[in-house]
Design a protein around this nucleic acid. Structure first.
Lengths: 251, 251
DNA sequence: TGCAGGTTGTTAGCCTGTTCACAGTCTCCG
DNA sequence: CGGAGACTGTGAACAGGCTAACAACCTGCA
């Protein structure tokens, strides 16, 4: 079983397909390696495939007329992106760029569509994926409308805690290293403001920063302060909300 | 053929199902009439069904801690809502409220899920619906991050033009009557600001307002000014982007 | 027909967050 | 291990948008 096959069998979306179907998918898939900062696709491009992230991390974003990035989502290893290509032939609307050196599996749109028509499980899985992300975006929309910059940042930190957080003795450590600029692009603010607010939160004792890593101290009370559900933090290893990976290591 | 059956056969999502399946759906469906301002469901409620709007219009929104509405979407006759109930058992996260006296068809979640598993067409249709709305929300997110209040309002007017616009000799008439407060709740602004900006646009000749109806004069140049695709406007009758209704009248 | 409630118009003052400009720090790669 | 380039910190000046407070206006229905 080669590497690509392993990854397909272990992605939440495809794992239930039977051997023969996965083999077909594997034949049609194209492996693609991208360096940090490399562009996977850009707006206006034909949306003829979906991508599975094998290793690394990909950022999806728009660019405003003034050149600012507006981040839609971060996609981690094991997750799929570009899946709106499955809906219709409309071109891409956003940029997809590797945040670090990454390897991807590119699955042609037509193949996956065929499979969806014949494998109800897969169709349901795709619906679920699209729907869960929609729910997430609707939450973000809610937290952007009418909320102060501070509340948006706190909301984002809690979201990151849910996705990347590790519980530690002294709080919850966010296992991501995002620059202030990155955070600003997600909440629609500026680098300077993020710096200031982050330091305010530190002075208030809500978080500490050790070697560029954020540790949230008061998760519950922060959540209450921005009127959001308290995130669930997995104890030991780094979890992923959308697609928990089964045990095992790639060959 | 009774009224409910007619509506099911004519909704984009269900029209391809065969007679027997539609009949089953119809047996399980519950008709529900709601007065203007009536609440269909609210956050925390069990998400045990999806709704088809037969007549009227429904507003989906969140409420911020300060009591402001943040509108997610407006749902017109012929469209479905509450469809995220099909994903999992998670409770509702938003309010659904009738903007005018409306009639709805309530379809139990379990029935529709069953059908999706056995009718690939339906599963694909739901994926498409969820996906198209996600695309729309991602566009909104983009137009909220980093954009001035004015640009957001212009963007919204163009969106409304695409969904409700009628081409006329002197421009594009928006066939919706939304109060300034409504518009503000959609773009995350205040009633006063909307009033002011709308009057600015009128003074600049970009639009006129006749008997509470907005008429856009310079659609193309407005679209350019906010860096958005020029909306396509249907010529004569009121169109709907997501679910064009086939010819015919309800019995 | 006549008011009551919802809708629009307008302004002054305040406050949050942006822009701009520069200094200091980290870190990673050659 | 040293420096270049990215990242963080800080403050002054400015501006867009919000709050608050009224006035005038429609319009639907009792």
């Amino acid at each position: 079983m080669d590497e690509r096959l392993w990854y397909l069998k272990n992605s939440e979306l495809f794992e239930r397909l039977d051997e023969a179907v996965i083999a077909r998918l594997e034949r049609e898939a194209r492996y693609r390696k991208i360096a940090r900062g490399g562009v996977v696709y850009m707006p206006q491009e034909a949306a003829d495939s979906v991508y599975l992230v094998l290793t690394g991390r990909v950022k999806l974003f728009h660019i405003t007329p003034e050149g600012k990035q507006a981040v839609l989502a971060l996609i981690d290893a094991g997750e799929l992106f570009g899946e709106l290509a499955l809906l219709d032939g409309t071109p891409r609307e956003e940029y997809a760029e590797a945040m670090e050196s990454s390897s991807l599996l590119r699955l042609p749109r037509e193949i996956v569509r065929d499979l969806m028509a014949s494998q109800p499980d897969l169709a349901l899985g795709v619906t679920r994926l699209v729907g869960l992300r929609r729910r997430r975006i609707e939450r973000r929309l809610k937290s952007l409308l009418f909320r102060s910059n501070r509340d948006r940042l706190v909301g984002l930190l809690l979201e990151l805690a849910e996705k990347y957080g590790k519980r530690r003795a002294d709080g919850v450590e966010l296992g991501v290293r995002l620059s202030h600029q990155d955070l600003a692009s997600i909440i629609g603010s500026t680098r300077e403001t993020v710096t200031v607010v982050l330091n305010e939160l530190r002075n208030e004792g809500s978080l500490t920063i050790e070697r560029r890593r954020v540790i949230l101290k008061q998760v519950a009370s922060l959540a209450r302060s921005v009127d959001v559900a308290v995130p669930e933090i997995a104890p030991a290893p780094s979890p992923r909300a959308e697609s928990p990976r089964p045990a095992g290591q790639p060959p």
